[in-house]
Amino acid sequence: MWEPDGAEGPVGKFGVLLDDGSVPGPVYIDMGSGGHVPGFTDWWLYNGSGRRPLASRMRAVCECGWSGAATYPIDWTRVEENEPHRYDTSGPEQDRESHTRDVVAGAVPVPEDVAHLISQLRQRLDEIEASDTLTVLRIVAELDSIVDTEGSYAAREARLTHTDQEIAAALGSTEKAATARLRRYARHRYI
């Protein structure tokens, strides 16, 4: 899986396709620990062993619903059973990075002076953290109080005039992550 840098952007992974172009469902693996049998969608599990489907191609996919148009053949003779992460997945990775850039480019820009302040704050917190974690904790508490007030008010106002999809796009986020963020802000006094 690919996690976004910084904000809660789209989370991606490798998706697989069968020979007929269909997307297989999860692979269920009985762990022998009760009635629950978990399902997994890691690409290397679709290797045709046992009763698993055999994937012939992979592509980048994202939790936001996007799927890469380009697909890449899987050469199962080159996939190491115990180290599938060594297989060349650079094609889907590049597609995913391109998708992430597109999502971030669609976000509302942070004013340049504020972006500079945030960058300075991150750098300063990193410097302080090495020697004084209590001071870092105090600074974060101050930031939390700003988020409590400003975040709840902004979230309430945004929800009055924008859809969840518009808010997620503005944040460079997925709807799921944006909704969770707004719900967290809703616990505060203005919503």
Rank of each mutant, 00 (worst) to 15 (best):
V108Q: 11
V23S: 08
S22H: 02
Q120V: 05
P10E: 01
R86I: 08
L17P: 01
G15D: 05
Y72A: 11
I167E: 03
V16N: 02
H36S: 02
Q94C: 03
P4I: 00
G32S: 03
A158R: 03
V79L: 08
D126E: 14
A170W: 00
T77E: 14
K13Y: 11
Q123F: 04
A154L: 13
T71V: 14
I167D: 03
G25H: 09
H162I: 01
E81I: 10
E112M: 06
E166I: 01
L18G: 04
G91S: 06
S131A: 13
P53C: 09
V27Q: 01
I139G: 03
G21E: 03
P24E: 05
A178S: 14
E150A: 14
W76A: 07
R184S: 14
V110D: 00
T135L: 15
S145A: 14
D148N: 13
P84S: 09
L125Q: 09
S145N: 14
R52S: 11
G151Y: 05
E175P: 05
L18D: 03
D42P: 00
W43Q: 00
Y153R: 15
A55M: 10
G39R: 00
S90H: 09
P38H: 01
V103D: 00
A69K: 14
S67L: 04
E93L: 13
L125V: 12
S90N: 06
A130G: 08
L143T: 07
G65W: 05
A107L: 00
T89Y: 01
D164L: 08
G6H: 04
Q123T: 12
R159H: 10
E80W: 03
E112V: 13
C64S: 11
P24M: 03
D20K: 13
A186F: 05
D19M: 01
M31Y: 09
Y87L: 09
H99L: 02
A155C: 09
D95Y: 02
V140P: 02
V140Y: 10
D75G: 07
T163G: 10
H162L: 14
E93T: 11
A115K: 09
T174V: 00
V23E: 12
F40D: 02
R156D: 03
Y185F: 15
N82Q: 12
R96C: 11
E175S: 12
R184E: 12
A178N: 07
R59Q: 12
G34Q: 09
S56W: 06
T135H: 10
I128T: 07
E142Q: 15
D19S: 14
R159K: 15
R59W: 00
V16S: 07
C62H: 02
